[in-house]
Nucleic acid binder design. Structure first.
Lengths: 159, 159
DNA sequence: TTCTGATATAGAATATAATTCATTTTAAGA
DNA sequence: TCTTAAAATGAATTATATTCTATATCAGAA
């Protein structure tokens, strides 16, 4: 997701606000809500996609429906040189790893991992992380309960 | 998002896989891909929503398009009693706070925060977090670069 | 002011898709 | 085998997406 410089007007913001809340809202409904023609909405949405303002449409699935009940954050110290991110890319390839962040001050990464349970986490650390060259140490934080988990951005109310 | 016990078959898994990758895939396309009638897909998708397997449809927006270029994780120690989460709910109400997790071992929370820049973070900490009773201390980790950020779950390939 | 070009929108026409519903199929139990 | 419930199909209807052309809007140049 590259840094982009785009100019969005308040109609774009309204579209983003609607889409962020329900990505399956159809153009006709958006058009009705904003008092515009569906074709105009279609054009704007396509443009937002094309400018990579809208990156993706996700269905958020309840982890417990797939029996994925353990969420963990792991700090990982590596031998990666600053600016290089060899280990990071390896981490990013692991399906259970949802996020990989290069963090300041620790010569390392913070990753977010979802597994079935504690056994699954141990297994992942031993058999997957354990096989990655360049990991010097890890520190794991277990999530007991998630109170909020969204990726909604704050959208300006005016231009 | 409550814990749920549901029985999903491999067709449900396939639908979830498709929806997770593109929540705007229409029923007709899913039907074509799975070799079924659109009406059958419609029924299943509605059932998945109703059973709260699919929780929400999100549009993922590029943060930099909204000039939100700083991501931070903050560990927060509080005077919350175990089991009670007064501070957590206050944190969850802050729009810039995307996630609030109750974590093990630290009498505290881990939150994920998105602001325009460092000044925005300082402002948030001073004027918003600073006003919350019960916060004992904070430790902030700044994200320099995000290598991966998804919420896709690992979906079983068989029942 | 008047023209020009670029951009955005509306609105009509057509293509696709969603939705409903009656019928059929399937699978498990009696 | 019969019964029942759940799920799927396929046809019919309604709604939406998409395309296209004509207008409208606006900024800058003559």
């Amino acid at each position: 997701m590259s840094k982009i410089e785009v100019s969005l007007d308040h109609i774009d913001y309204q579209i983003l606000r609607i889409m962020q809340n329900n990505a399956r809202t159809n153009n006709a409904d958006i058009a009705r809500e904003l008092g515009m023609a569906p074709s105009a909405i279609l054009e704007r949405v396509k443009k937002l996609e094309q400018k990579e303002v809208i990156v993706q449409y996700n269905a958020k699935i309840n982890p417990s429906a797939l029996d994925q009940n353990l969420l963990s954050f792991i700090f990982i110290k590596t031998s990666d040189i600053i600016g290089e991110q060899g280990v990071a890319y390896l981490l990013a390839e692991i399906p259970e790893v949802q996020e990989v962040h290069d963090i300041a001050g620790d010569d390392g990464y913070l990753i977010k991992v979802r597994t079935n349970d504690a056994a699954g986490l141990v297994d992942l650390m031993r058999n997957t992380l354990g096989k990655i060259e360049g990991i010097l140490s890890t520190r794991t934080t277990i999530v007991l309960q998630t109170v909020k988990e969204e990726q909604k951005l704050v959208i300006p109310s005016k231009d």
